[in-house]
Amino acid sequence: MTEFAQYLISGLVVGCIYGLIATGFTAVYNATHIVNFAQGESSMLAALCAASLVLAGAPLLLAIAVAVVVVGLVNILVERLAIRRSGTDVTRGIIITIGVGIVLQGLAALVWGTDAQPLPAFSGPGSISAYGVVVPRQALWVLGTTAVVMALLYLFLTRSFLGKAFRACAMNGQAAALMGIPTGLMRSIGFLLSGTVGAVAGVIIAPIALMQYDSGVALGIKGFVACIIGGFGNPIGAALGGLLLGATETLAAGYISSGFKNAIAYVLLLLFLLVRPGGLLGEFGAAKR
């Protein structure tokens, strides 16, 4: 039982990260109807940026804040330079975002090399144990930060004027434009949101899982799987899907085989795509069709 609880806790911690990245996917998808295949790179970039800043002597909190802001700006730039020009063609959008991912990954390899860059844990390296279950302190940071970010995002989308405009744009871009909502700005906001949320995910997991130039790919795909499980474009579904995926993955790795751990996520992806493509909670704005 202790073993099970241990696996479950680790799974939920990883699941939080998947959930955050999945939320990033939904922010971009809702604003642009593009699936950003470079989503995972935001997390990687932020973690490496923060690690470098800490190494250069910046206080941890400042380093993290700067990294998150920088990645958000990079995302806006990417949208302006590459993605806005792709038009509405799905295939072209996919290939362009793949290209963006390759470029970001290549640049990261140039700047930071191929070695993992360590980021110190936020409140010391120790762990807490209760009832025989050992939890690293950083894991608590992950759980707490995820809860706060999700709550802020929820408040932004449902309570603020800008958030309402963003949702209107997601439901029907043309109608929103006719109501005077600047859809171009909403696209930028979508990419900014996805960049910052992804960056936060990367920074909080970096002390537990070492990050290097190619860590973003796997994170991005896992985030997408979480989206599919929860229902594409649905932020609540994305969070739920992340937790579910994280727990399944760690439990399967613990009880079956750790080598095939990665394949489990992909098999889940295929299963959900084929059996329930709308995900558990249904696609966001599906009612419009």
């Binding site: 590459a82 362009i96 290209g99 390759i102 990954q105 290549g106 140039l110």
Partner: peptide, 12 residues
């Protein structure tokens, strides 16, 4: 390593 970057740019 620069080759990957140029590759991605070409794709875009």
């Amino acid at each position: 390593r620069l080759d990957v970057v140029i590759y991605g740019l070409l794709l875009i």
